[in-house]
Design a protein around this nucleic acid. Structure first.
Lengths: 243, 243
DNA sequence: TCGTGGTATTTGGTATGCCAAAAATCTAAG
DNA sequence: CTTAGATTTTTGGCATACCAAATACCACGA
């Protein structure tokens, strides 16, 4: 039987099987629980109380209206993410990161972002690079970032994510997003701090300039140094935030 | 009640509660299943057959002698790792990485390792850096790596892991280990290839020299370029390995 | 022979129930 | 009032049963 073509014999079967995609299998309870718990954990201020924050499977299953099974699977996933840790026969505790861990994560972030910058200089389109400036178009000499810390902090995060996305590297995007989620728990206390905000904007613009100039080494260096600066800042001034 | 001190009243209770760590709660079936499945997945050659490799919950639970519950939790964890993907009502499929994905992962690895190199130049002890040479003590002009590819490949991996560990950055260590696990699926086909092995050893020695010299920029550059070289190699010669 | 419709089977998803370890609470001896 | 000891409660770990979707299989009819 020499190559049965690809037609399946049925001559009346129109081969214009257009746009028929798999019907959306509404996400499972497991995934819903995962998303819900993840959001809840990220939203809470883990450092508000000195006692560790505990989760209770049964209470969660009641609150979410599902049985313990999908809850437990979601917990297992969150544990892989490093957001919680379950201690056998004791409970599920929301992980609190030490200052050293946060600094460490920011360093890894710096590594990944500098690689993203490197890639961007060789592959991204000029207009996409230039578009990065838009994130800061609401700020300038007459509207200083340090006077609108919260707003600038949002723009800051969005800028970094957009930048890394330009690398067109799914791995870099995913890894940095994961790190960001962990680091962001402190955003209101660190990333948006006034004294650092002042130097942040010029550094960002410098990064964009290097990218536009296709200066691989310089772009990489500026991206790295900028984020390493944040790491150093947290290391130096973050002690007050950790108990 | 004014501050009941911290003593619990018992005066005979020695406060030298030394080195009493929580008794090992023999790892759960969930974790055992996770480890077992992970190892099995890493060991199998996913690219041997054109059809996707499927896993069956019930079959696994029977083979491992546990119920489906811990199996499912382990699967959920593996899915977070990106090793498998469960399709509702269809099955659990072992993820096959495309060449582009592997190259992407190696680039991220390069980013992390170059940051590790940077950190090492400022914190690691000289003797620990020098000790990195030991991984290659069995190779030299009279015993070329390309004549013992398998053995050199092992030393290669061990070297990189030891190097990154010297950074004393848990995040860098964990992230690179995760990436390594995914990339290593191709080790027998790519990392150990003769033509690349020849240039690998000198580059490694160059990295060590830069570290010993505490030349931060050079060490970072050499680490990055070395691993980016692997990425470029896989991108150029890897097509034959992916179906 | 081919295809059509229906039925049995497979497979992941979810709900429940029970178990043992650990903690919290209670009780009774000193 | 203190505390050792027993008891109850809480909590995560695990096994099991059932469900619905998807598939595989099969018989019947053109």
């Amino acid at each position: 039987m020499p190559e049965p073509k690809q037609s399946k014999a049925s001559p009346v079967m129109a081969d214009t099987d257009i746009a028929i995609v798999r019907i959306a299998p509404e996400t499972s309870f497991k995934n819903k629980a995962y998303e819900a718990l993840k959001e809840a954990i990220l939203k809470m201020d883990i450092y508000a109380t000195p006692e560790p924050v505990m989760l209770d499977e049964r209470a969660l299953s009641e609150r979410l209206g599902v049985s313990r099974t999908p809850i437990r699977e979601a917990i297992a996933m969150l544990e892989q993410d490093g957001f919680v840790k379950t201690v056998p026969r004791r409970g599920i505790v929301v992980v609190r990161r030490s200052k050293a861990e946060i600094v460490d994560m920011i360093r890894a972030w710096a590594a990944l972002e500098s690689m993203a910058a490197r890639l961007i200089t060789t592959t991204a389109r000029k207009k996409d690079i230039t578009a990065l400036r838009d994130f800061f178009k609401d700020f300038g000499p007459d509207r200083l970032p340090q006077d609108h810390v919260e707003e600038y902090s949002k723009a800051n995060i969005a800028f970094h994510q957009a930048l890394i996305a330009l690398s067109e590297s799914p791995v870099l995007v995913d890894l940095t997003n994961d790190l960001l989620l962990h680091v962001r728990g402190y955003r209101q206390l660190t990333i948006g701090r006034k004294d650092r905000t002042a130097t942040s904007l010029p550094e960002h613009l410098g990064m964009i300039e290097a990218l536009e100039a296709r200066d691989t080494e310089l772009a990489e260096k500026r991206a790295r140094d900028h984020t390493l600066g944040l790491a150093a800042y947290v290391e130096a001034h973050g002690h007050e935030l950790f108990t």
